[in-house]
């Protein structure tokens, strides 16, 4: 009971921090950094939801994002559909892609799932590049801003308002994922992650649970992708934007943060995005320092920064408890 009170207190403090700092600072640069942190945090948490809770290696997360972003943008561009609705439409499109990917891949294991999702993502990117008449391909697709709501402008000239949209999206996704992993379904996810055959002979339909996990994650990746399109304003289906490089960044944050925790991704995102900004002052050495930091974290905390925090909390608890 005490532990859960501490957890809720910690969660509330983090929420307060994330909600207050950009508003108090009222600085466009800082807001942009916080947007990057939240974007990478929630994508890494979704990646962790699949990998850390069910060992599903989705190496095509960038392509899934692209589908969400383009669905929303194309609906607005060609049919004048509100980008607010586009957020949900982007999610629905990737949900369908996730369902399809799940049906064809989830009987496979390990690297084969990763490769199949990667090929699907590449297929999406190739399709977006080559359907130039419809998507404008490499010329880039202009994305409409989110329309005003309740008298508040959500145009790209008001980054603070966009930050709060992302903040709400992140809270909704995080709370949903947290509820799922702490429910009966989450218990089965963990059992399947630990021993697929063991879960199977207990009577759990492994493929069905994997499909559920994958489609939930795919839907939210699409929503985040749709927001991302609105935030950057122009979409180009390049590998740098939506390919393996993007997946690797997300994967790195998930691992540095700590697999199987969800909240560890926030630590990972702050550490990696924050350090990129800090190291920018040392110019060409920044990538060397950045790499050294990644190696250091994974050597010292094999379970990521979240694992390090848990170790620290356990040590403090031992010090505080009276000795018998």
């Amino acid at each position: 009971m005490l532990a859960s009170r501490w957890k809720y207190a910690g969660f509330s403090l983090v929420l307060l921090f994330l909600a207050a700092v950009p508003a108090v600072a009222n600085n466009n640069y800082l807001t942009a950094v916080f947007v990057s942190v939240l974007l990478f945090f929630i994508l890494a948490a979704l990646f962790d939801f699949m990998l850390g809770y069910l060992n599903i290696f989705n190496f095509g997360i960038g392509g899934f994002m692209a589908l969400g972003a383009y669905t929303s943008a194309l609906l607005a561009y060609h049919y004048g559909i509100s980008p607010w609705f586009g957020l949900l439409a982007g999610g629905c499109a990737t949900l369908l892609l996730g369902l399809f990917a799940g049906i064809i891949t989830l009987r496979l294991r390990g690297i084969y799932v990763g490769l199949t999702t990667l090929f699907l993502a590449e297929f999406v990117l190739f399709a977006l590049s080559n359907l130039r008449e419809y998507t404008r391909g490499a010329a880039g697709l202009q994305v409409s801003s989110l329309p005003d709501l309740f008298g508040i402008s959500f145009s790209r000239s008001n980054p603070l308002a966009l930050y709060y949209v992302l903040f709400v999206i992140c809270v909704v996704i995080y709370v949903t994922l947290h509820c799922v992993v702490n429910s009966r379904i989450g218990l089965v996810f963990k059992a399947i992650r630990d021993d697929q055959l063991g879960a199977s002979v207990l009577g759990f339909n492994v493929v069905r649970y994997k499909l559920l996990n994958f489609t939930i994650a795919s839907f939210f990746i699409g929503v985040v992708g749709a927001f991302y399109g609105n935030y950057i304003g122009i979409l180009v289906p390049t590998p740098q934007e939506f390919g393996v490089a993007r997946t690797t960044e997300i994967l790195t944050i998930a691992y540095v943060g700590g697999r199987g925790t969800l909240w560890g991704s926030l630590l990972g995102a702050f550490a990696l995005i924050g350090l990129q900004e800090v190291f920018s002052v040392v110019d060409q050495w920044r990538l060397v320092l950045y790499g050294a930091f990644l190696v250091f974290v994974l050597m010292v905390f094999p379970r990521g920064l979240a694992g390090g925090c848990k170790q620290l909390a356990a040590w403090i608890t031992r010090q505080v408890q009276p000795r018998r």
Binding site: K190, D194, S200, L202, G260
Partner: peptide
């Protein structure tokens, strides 16, 4: 399928224990 068989009421253990180790 093993899932179906388990639901019919057949439980088993393994020579090398298959516990859920991270739970």
């Amino acid at each position: 399928h093993p899932t179906r068989i388990a639901r019919w009421g057949i439980a088993r253990t393994f020579q090398v224990p298959r516990t859920f180790n991270n739970m």
